[in-house]
Design a protein around this nucleic acid. Structure first.
Length: 291
DNA sequence: CACCAGGTAATTC
DNA sequence: GAATTACATGGT
């Protein structure tokens, strides 16, 4: 990332290995929406951001240099060298080379822990358009109003306090079905400080995961997503139906258990498991494997 | 009308 | 403990 400059209410920067569609549509986040002109508007960390892309020149609207430095560089992981990651992953692996080519502009976002927990609880046995809708509904109903931008009102994701003590029947209006009671229970546990979700990042991956698994609706796969997308545990390799299918398709002709795939990923990708998973997930969806 | 969707909790063996 | 089964909701 270089040539950062600020013009009124706008940041312009040249950023390598960053593509809006790849980053926002690769399944890691639910609050970014493509606009008619191809730009994206999203909410994160209580701010509304609008982004335009023209090859490697990226324009950030509705922000300033202070927020860019303090929030967005870290959120978008701009200080990490994704070129080096891709080189390492694709060395001696033709399949990964194709996956990386397809998802060349993916960056793993550093999202809010609490928002990521609730979002991925909702994601279980669900599908992405509905997950996005539910997260939007939760924010509109319980979150703090941020501002009106381009004629639309934007709301922050509600804090544990704001989501606390809501009747299950009310939560069901969020289109989350049977997950309403998971949200209710998890909010209770977090609000009562039985799990301090903002300190888990400081624990090692296994210990952080162990704590996450105490939350209702959080199993091994959802926990791995939370670790990877909000707690910087880049060895985490979440295995869902897509990742399982694509890994079996390319590397296990006779099928494999999740444990076998985990061991394989640990061995093959070492410290880069999370990045590898995201390239493979996005590639699997593109290939529509299993359909 | 079955079957499925970024799995997990509850139940059963 | 390891294997089944139920689970909301909306779309094909």
């Amino acid at each position: 990332m270089d040539h950062i400059k600020e013009e009124d209410n706008k940041i312009i920067a040249k950023i390598r290995d960053f593509n809006l569609k790849h980053t926002f549509d690769c399944g890691q986040c639910f609050r970014w929406n493509e606009q008619e002109d191809g730009s994206y508007i999203g909410v994160a960390h209580g701010k509304v951001l609008h982004i335009y892309e023209d090859e490697d020149t990226i324009t950030f609207l509705n922000t300033n240099m202070t927020d860019f430095q303090n929030i967005w560089i870290d959120y978008f992981d701009f200080n990490r060298d994704y070129g080096a990651i891709k080189d390492k992953l694709t060395k001696d692996d033709n399949i990964m080379a194709q996956a990386v080519e397809h998802g060349c502009g993916i960056r793993i976002l550093n999202q809010d822990e609490w928002e990521t927990i609730i979002s991925f609880i909702i994601s279980a046995r669900n599908f992405i358009p509905r997950i996005k809708k539910s997260v939007e509904l939760i924010s509109e109903k319980y979150g703090r109003f941020i501002e009106e931008y381009n004629g639309k009102k934007y709301y922050a994701f509600p804090t544990p306090e704001e989501l606390y003590n809501k009747p299950e029947e009310e939560l069901k209006n969020l289109n989350v079905g049977y997950r309403a009671k998971y949200i209710q229970s998890t909010t209770f546990i977090v609000k009562e400080n039985q799990v301090d979700v903002y300190k888990l990042e400081n624990l090692d991956r296994e210990m952080a995961k162990k704590n996450l698994l105490r939350l209702m609706g959080v199993g091994p796969k959802v926990a791995d997503c939370i670790l990877l997308f909000s707690m910087r545990k880049y060895k985490a390799f979440p295995i869902d139906v897509w990742v399982k299918r694509v890994m079996e398709y390319f590397y296990f002709k006779d099928g494999a258990t999740n444990n076998q795939i985990q061991e394989f990923a640990k061995e093959k990708y070492e410290d880069l498991g999370g990045f590898a998973q995201q390239y493979m997930f996005y590639y699997a969806r593109e290939l529509n494997i299993g359909k």
